[in-house]
């Protein structure tokens, strides 16, 4: 048997890299006027918005605070606020 070449890595292993530390603005989901359209889920480049039934939240371990979700939300239910760390 030949030895396996150890240059492969497991699927989805990038999750050890908590990119949330890059953020200056933080999305706040107000859960007020949400109409369940899921545009925020679709447009998140970091695929970190999860939820169901009008209640969605960003996983702040990975959210980089780009603000696309707040900008694209058709009912303005997401607000970007300066995060105090």
């Amino acid at each position: 048997m030949s030895k396996p070449i150890l240059i492969t890595v497991g699927p989805g292993t990038s999750k050890v890299n908590k990119t949330g530390a890059w953020r200056t603005l933080m999305p706040v989901f107000k859960h007020d006027k949400c109409n369940d359209c899921r545009i925020c889920v679709t447009v998140c480049p970091d695929a970190c918005i999860f939820g169901q039934n009008n209640v969605y939240n960003a996983n702040l371990d990975y959210c980089k605070g780009c603000g696309i979700c707040a900008h694209e939300c058709p009912v303005d239910d997401i607000e970007m606020v300066l995060e105090a760390k």
Partner: peptide
């Protein structure tokens, strides 16, 4: 709608914000 599932290109990648 069913709950949002994890994307096949998952979080933690090092692309710039936005």
């Amino acid at each position: 709608k069913p709950p949002v599932t994890e994307s096949l290109l998952t979080s933690g990648h090092r692309a710039c914000a936005g």
